[in-house]
Design a protein around this nucleic acid. Structure first.
Lengths: 354, 354
DNA sequence: TCTCGTCGTGAATGCGTATTCATTGTTTGC
DNA sequence: GCAAACAATGAATACGCATTCACGACGAGA
């Protein structure tokens, strides 16, 4: 047997059911004018032939593929795995498909976008990856909406959904201050990523407001990975020229985990006694026994909803929404990496729900 | 501005370049009969118009979409995230796209397959999910090759690639024996999954060969998740009616991690002093400081290559390979959750490479 | 009874590309 | 120098479906 076997077409089904081809098309289209008994006869014939409508062919006329592209920049961060999962479930529930691209961290997504365009996707979701403004306008010109997830591109009119990263950074700073921290350190991620920048900025801003000197805030770049954060953390404590910090802000959970593991295993530090740690994301891994991270929860579900509302895949004729920026408030989840100050004690809750 | 803006077609490009439409098609097809200077002129025109060939339309005639479906059953297990990543990189390098479906653990993939069929994908890769033999034969009848990744379906002629799970289970048993373990426990995963079954079977078989009594091997099901394994592990040690095991086989790394975290934090156990732990997969997380798992490494890269060779996407006219079973040897990676017996000491290596 | 609307259906057409085949213009072989 | 092979191109068509339009059947209202 050879591949490329004849697959039944709507004509085959039509012939078997004793109707014309358009009737088959209508039988598979909800709310179309067709007699119920005719539809049943067609569906019966289709079943016999194992007929499945060819979406590729129908896309050609409808100009809708029901495919949405998801461009992922950093699968090593579990946060984006959860984002993928959330979008996947949501899309499948709506009968849409997800075309997934992975882009090496640091690389731009322009090439991925070109592939995307070939497939006439209905929309593009971009997470944790760079993209040129030229590509954005090409997408827009072709009528393809694009949403930046947790990221924005200065100088472009692309819409985006994100957590209020600066605000979240401030929350961590505040928690540290309330817990009595005096000297601070911060492990940042991708310097080109606005997410990391904003969190760091909010964090520093809040500390400066409180009269902390900039020189008392150590900043190290951690390559946006568990391993990068581990070595960054060690470098902080090996630098004899600076005072040891008593609070460490990991720019996201996975990096905080890397830092904690390194500091515990290599330097024997105890968290939060020797060093308090705060981070960002609240991935499910953050609540595991060895970490119990006090962290800012990103409300993934709401961010997904906002993303879909901007894409408005159901109303393709509406104009593309441009320049939208929907920052969504994060929420501090108190666990065990920052001692809970008395004033916050009642807040120490770790239930679910965003 | 409204969506559904006119996208340039090959006719538009042809007109601008002063050629006919087929020439545009040829300009974008490697190794086709076209004068180099003509091609250049066409590409120039295409550039001006931001023309991108419409893959949907071309699929209609070529019957090739360059889309491969990847059905994922359990994203909560990082192993499958790495599998996704490996396939994604590989496919993109070949200019193919990945249509990703996630299926709830335990649910079957039949519905996902139906969507897949609509999109005329060139192949299907199924990981960690159930699938009926009926769906497999439908795919085969339509000429769509399907490969089961780390899974097989008894009674079907679907091809598969997998780690030698039984053999790997034996490796762990052997390591325990060499380290002097006497009583054993095992936390299994999805009882419907052949992966978990085979690992458990190999493990038990090897122990029985060595004269261990079946009653000295505790078996608990852990829902195939970190959390499930955590509570399963606790249940083992709370059961006063049985002797405490001194060796625990976690059917995969993520479950072993769950068990370790629970036993350490709730029962204060020390690994490997109070309990040695072996597992399977060797996900990157397994080498993190708190775990340092001794585990059987699945050679993902080789498994991906084998998968692609079975799909033989480049030779669609060859018959589909059926009933292939390619078990690939795993390799035991010694780390710190099983004391390394003297005879194995030279093996304690943790470099990369499968 | 006649007309008008409604409903269900079929014939014809278009979507954007690849492919086949025929037609040129050009080169090779003898 | 002429037939023959060849390279480059264009006209026509097919791919599988959705959509438009026209047509007949039928029932309601007059």
């Amino acid at each position: 047997m050879v591949r490329r076997q004849a697959r039944a077409t709507s004509f085959d089904v039509a012939a078997l059911a004793g109707v014309s081809q358009p009737v088959v098309s209508r039988a598979f289209t909800p709310n179309s004018r067709i007699a119920p008994e005719t539809r049943e006869r067609v569906l019966e014939a289709a079943r016999k032939l194992n007929y499945v409508p060819n979406s590729i062919a129908s896309s050609l006329t409808t100009k809708r593929t029901n495919i949405v592209a998801l461009i992922l920049g950093n699968l090593a961060n579990p946060f984006y795995v959860h984002v993928l999962h959330a979008f996947s479930k949501r899309m499948q529930a709506e009968g849409r498909q997800l075309l997934v691209f992975t882009v090496d961290p640091g690389a731009d997504s322009d090439e991925a976008i070109l592939h995307v365009l070939k497939y006439q996707v209905d929309g593009v979701i971009l997470t944790a990856a760079q993209l040129s403004t030229r590509m954005i306008s090409i997408c827009h010109d072709r009528g393809i909406p694009i949403v930046l997830f947790n990221r924005y591109i200065p100088g472009s009119d692309a819409s985006g959904v994100r957590c209020d990263n600066a605000g979240g950074g401030r929350l961590i700073a505040e928690a540290f201050l309330a817990a009595g921290a005096k000297t601070f350190a911060m492990i940042t991620g991708d310097p080109k990523g606005t997410t990391s920048q904003d969190r760091a900025r909010g964090f520093v801003e809040r500390l400066l407001e409180e009269g902390i000197k900039r020189s008392d805030i150590i900043e190290v770049e951690g390559q946006s990975s568990y391993e990068g954060a581990a070595s960054a953390a060690l470098s902080i404590f090996k630098d004899k020229s600076r005072p040891k910090p008593d609070a460490l802000f990991g720019i996201n959970d996975i990096m905080a985990m890397g830092a904690i593991d390194a500091l515990r295993s290599r330097l024997g530090l105890s968290i939060p006694n020797d060093l308090m740690v705060g981070s960002f994301d609240d991935i499910p891994e953050a609540r595991r026994a060895p970490y119990q991270l006090t962290t800012v929860r990103q409300p993934i579900d709401r961010m997904v909803e906002e993303t879909l509302s901007i894409l408005h895949l159901d109303e393709p004729d509406l104009p593309i929404e441009r320049g939208i920026d929907r920052p969504i408030q994060g929420r501090l989840i108190w666990r065990n990496t920052i001692p809970v100050p008395p004033a916050y004690r009642f807040e120490k809750t770790d239930e679910s729900g965003s």
